[in-house]
Design a protein around this nucleic acid. Structure first.
Lengths: 193, 193
DNA sequence: TTGATCATGTAACGTGTTACATGATTAA
DNA sequence: TTAATCATGTAACACGTTACATGATCAA
């Protein structure tokens, strides 16, 4: 939330929108959590707000990061972060799916496939939007775009895996070994460090 | 945990090992959480245990799923699950990294790259182990293998993205648009549903 | 004698989710 | 009149993490 508010000030409701549409693919929070966290950050003097009365709309509290908040942010950026650990219930089902209702499992995998295809399409539209900018805009939004790119790759990965997995289960086939050529190719051009 | 115990009975310590080495790439839990959860499941009569005294070793509680536990499991399998929502702090840093210490960020991305390459290597070794089995074994462990395959794809995706991102940041380059040929190819063979 | 492995737990805390709660405007 | 959007919150609970705690065996 500090990163978002440091980017530009906004109300709680505003942050909800940004979580939903901007950075939802790598961080999310409900409005309840956001309002409570804003209260906490305010108590810690890391953010402050101005009341904006509006005609025809409820009042807004527009939050921004304080000097202490910016120090906190800088400190956070200096600390290393840990990779997230996944908790994917669908994979738990698949793992434990032996001698269970396979057709039902396949249906659920298909539902997830549809969801991820939709997500992927949305992300690609956002990507097109990014590339419709001029060079100055592209440079400015370069880092947020790279996070979008991660989201796209992630969804592509899931979609490909789901398609492959569904096909395999439907045909009751045994998985085939990975193609060695692709792997050898990857090993043949090691990255400089 | 019910899925794991249904697969085969085991002690708390045993479950710790399975989380670490078996299914760690899509679900994890610390030993503290596992012991508390076992206590809870036992209070709900979903699992039961037998005490196994051992020479030269502390006593073991070997847990297994009760009939009620199996009913609970079946009910859980029948309910749809939600895709996990990611919370990736590294992406938050990248997103908010504009006008911050880029070289430091690149170093951190490289550290993560090394971690993920290591993970990927480990998973590929497990994969080789799977394919070293005969057909019967492959059939039996088919579903767990498919979850491993997901882990491999996931790590491959991260590694590729990290390499691309690090190279781009290091060269201070603008991202280039995705290759349309690859995407057209993907669209040209739509999946039957 | 130091650290790893086997084996089990409790307590405190912090984070996140669900349910409950209000109230105005606007488009279908 | 129904649902969506704008706009804000509280309370209770569930879940997860960190710290604390013990104690034996075995290999380096």
């Amino acid at each position: 939330m500090l990163v978002l508010l440091d980017d530009s000030p906004g109300s709680g409701y505003d942050l909800v929108q940004r979580f939903r549409f901007g950075i939802g693919h790598f961080w999310n929070a409900t409005h309840q959590q956001i309002y409570q966290e804003l209260k906490k950050l305010h108590a810690e003097r890391l953010v402050q707000y101005e009341l904006h009365s509006q005609e025809e709309r409820p009042d807004k509290k527009v939050y921004c990061v304080t000097a202490a908040g910016r120090r906190g942010l800088a400190a956070w950026f200096a600390e290393p972060v840990k990779p997230p650990q996944a908790r994917d219930a669908l994979l738990v089902k698949l793992y434990g799916g032996t001698r269970r209702n396979l057709p039902a499992l396949i249906v659920e995998l298909e539902q997830h496939l549809a969801l991820h295809q939709k997500q992927l399409g949305d992300y690609r539209n956002l990507e097109a939007l990014y590339f419709s900018q001029d060079d100055a805009g592209r440079r400015e939004h370069r880092l947020p775009y790279l996070t979008l790119r991660r989201g796209i790759r992630y969804q592509e990965g899931i979609v490909a895996w789901l398609e492959e997995t569904i096909a395999l289960l439907r045909d009751d086939a045994l998985p085939s070994a990975p193609v060695p050529s692709a792997r050898a190719k990857a090993a043949a051009r090691p990255r400089k460090r």
